[in-house]
Design a protein around this nucleic acid. Structure first.
Lengths: 245, 245
DNA sequence: CGGGTCGTTGACCGTGATCAAGTAACGTGG
DNA sequence: CCACGTTACTTGATCACGGTCAACGACCCG
């Protein structure tokens, strides 16, 4: 039997004993699959579940009344989706697939069990949640104070450094299953200007594009350009409570 | 003896029994006071404490290498400052006072105690942390997709709805101890354009300014303009674990 | 072949940045 | 009490980054 998504994700950071693993596995629901470009959940739902992404890309976004759209976060396999919503009765954003996706949902109430029985997992989930916050801070900085060129560089570096963790093969090339409208919505540009800027970046030799894949030919130069900090490689787990048993 | 800052803050949301209160109080350190416009902590510090704001405004920010600045979040009395940093070994942002400020610090390690002994407080802190995330999402939307006029409207509404909670007197007027450069850095504009935009908003009759105080004369119209959702009034606490004892 | 999506390119335009000068308020020291 | 420096806000002239609109081509799939 294949391991639970969530356990797999968490044991990347801390060692789980068997009792904890069993308990965690019991909280997870049956996995669900969605096609490309479909709505998963949104502001109208009352469900309030969290999802672990098993495969595929998806993203959360919000619309303004007049149709302007802001993509908030792009989610990859291994990510936990939905933290920002658990403080409220309803989701605050829309969740949509960028391609075919498999998700492992679990109910918000499962956290209750974790908080009472598994302090170490609690600390880990807490850290994962606040790390997301730090990542939003970096994004905010890019959105507020960077040029189009820098914004695109930032987005690519962010995606790249996340994918590096799971695809440990340290390739500079990755698949980017987003169209230019989606890229623009993620960093506050129009699809037209995304096209122009990416073409310019390619002519400068900073990136290379082949179909839907992209290569960062000078990741170091790009990183210097946008003053990039990788938030994914390290996490401070030293203060976590020890496992009971 | 005056009550602990943290307990005061938390008991707004859940009822603490005496044992829990005592335990919490023991985690807090001695309060500290800082003058206007001074640095409290930043990326060079290793300390990694959290702060409850007792009085005064302050803000977290990051700089780009060339001097551009982004104010990330403005903190008011009652706020807990520092969540985004606890996942890392060092702070990710700089913390600076906007005026004279009193803070109640406590060490990140205190969370360990809470996670093990006080599941209900754990759930509450978790919710407060992820609510911050939701607020960043709203801000991101404003930064990415709104005009200068809308951005300023959004900022004012956000500040106003936060102040309404503690100053329960439902006044439309509040003190804004930030200069226009700081306002601009908070929403991605220059001080010059902040000036022009606020003058325009005033001429439209949406706001009124007297010295350092500001009045939202048409909060409803402003809220419609920016499609504003108040994230501060409600929080879902129904799923919290019951208090032990 | 036809329609749809997506990326590209060009012409034009507007929002907000930049630069600079001027004013008001305030504190400090002679 | 005035001279002076500092900080903050305002206003105007000019500029440029990125938006808007539109046309076109590549590709895919039916």
């Amino acid at each position: 039997m294949s391991e639970s998504c969530l356990i797999q994700k968490l044991s990347y950071y801390v060692k789980l004993n068997e009792a904890a693993s069993k308990r965690m596995a019991s909280l997870e629901e049956k996995e669900e699959t969605y096609e490309k470009g479909v709505h998963v959940y949104g502001r109208d739902d009352r469900s309030n579940r969290l999802f672990v992404v098993k495969s595929g890309w998806l993203y959360t976004y919000t619309d303004l009344p007049d149709g302007r759209r802001q993509i908030i976060r792009i989610h990859h396999p291994g990510d936990i989706v939905g933290f920002p919503d658990i403080a409220f009765h309803q989701p605050t954003t829309e969740l949509r697939t960028a391609e075919r996706v498999t998700l492992c949902p679990f109910d918000k109430k499962a956290l209750q069990v974790i908080f009472v029985e598994l302090p170490q997992i609690t600390a880990l989930l807490f850290s994962l949640a606040v790390r997301e916050e730090a990542i939003f801070i970096d994004l905010l900085r890019a959105m507020g104070r960077m040029s189009a060129r820098e914004k695109i560089g930032y987005l690519l570096l962010d995606l790249w450094s996340r994918l590096k963790i799971t695809n440990s093969a340290a390739s500079d090339t990755f698949r980017l299953p987003l169209n230019q409208s989606e890229i623009g919505d993620a960093i506050g540009l129009t699809n037209v200007y995304v096209s122009k800027t990416m073409t310019a970046l390619e002519e400068e030799g900073l990136i290379r594009r082949v179909g839907t894949t992209i290569s960062l030919t000078r990741p170091d130069r790009l990183a210097r350009l946008v003053d990039f900090t990788d938030r994914y490689v390290t996490m401070d787990t030293t203060w976590f409570p020890m496992t009971a048993g």
